[in-house]
């Protein structure tokens, strides 16, 4: 983890001084995280792709002013979150949309299914269905909780890193994760309630 962080720090420092190749390496290692984060917020693939593009363009433009190269990922999320907020303000995107609305429109937040040779077709289908249900449950969370969950569980960011990215205290991040966990536990009860501990 430290090695990865050092590598990002070095790439960010090089990109800051104008090395386009270093910035491309940063793009390659961060695009999926940013795209998934934005998609979880705006829930439209085309818009998420546009905002991902804009996030990296703005990052390139303002990289010379990034003081701590090691904070690159959090800083990038901050740019993305600002762009999402602008979209919401302009009325082009909505943060609070019930999953049932998405279902009616034939859209889903769940990422495109990916083939996994190690799984049999039935297991894969069940796994895809479950993941779809989790994404749909996530879609019903308040935007700030959803953002914290995606950054922590899907992108693997620490609470401190999320706090830096969202401009709140780590305690607030923890609280958002806890409230989200409670809500998701109820919404996903059919997948998480076992009988093994009910003796």
């Amino acid at each position: 983890m430290d090695e990865e962080r050092n590598e990002v720090e070095e790439l960010a420092a090089r990109a800051r001084s104008g090395e386009a190749e270093a910035f491309e390496a940063l793009y390659r290692s961060h695009q999926a995280g940013i795209y998934t984060f934005i998609l979880s917020q705006v829930r439209e693939r085309e818009l998420a792709a546009d905002l991902t593009q804009e996030t990296f363009v703005r990052a390139w433009q303002s990289l010379p002013r990034l003081r701590k190269a090691g904070a690159f990922r959090g800083w990038l999320h901050r740019i993305a979150a600002n762009l999402v907020r602008d979209e919401v303000k302009s009325g082009r995107a909505r943060l609070e949309v019930a999953a049932s609305v998405l279902a009616t429109n034939g859209e889903t937040l769940a990422p495109e299914p990916r083939a996994d040779a190690a799984e049999g077709p039935e297991a894969m289908l069940a796994s895809q269905e479950m993941k779809g249900a989790v994404w749909d449950a996530l879609a019903e969370l308040p935007a700030q909780q959803r953002a914290a969950v995606v950054m922590h569980h899907v992108e693997g960011m620490s609470m401190t890193e999320i706090a830096e990215a969202t401009g709140v205290r780590p305690g607030t991040v923890m609280s958002r994760l806890a409230r989200a966990r409670e809500a998701l536990r109820k919404r996903l009860s059919r997948y998480v309630e076992g009988t093994d501990d009910l003796s």
Binding site: A49, V154, D197
Partner: peptide
Amino acid sequence: AALERTGGLLDSLSLEEAPAETWAAV
């Protein structure tokens, strides 16, 4: 246990790649 399984489900979600043409546009 149910809350922890919920965490496990969230951990199993994977990232989605941005469309391939995004870098060219950037």
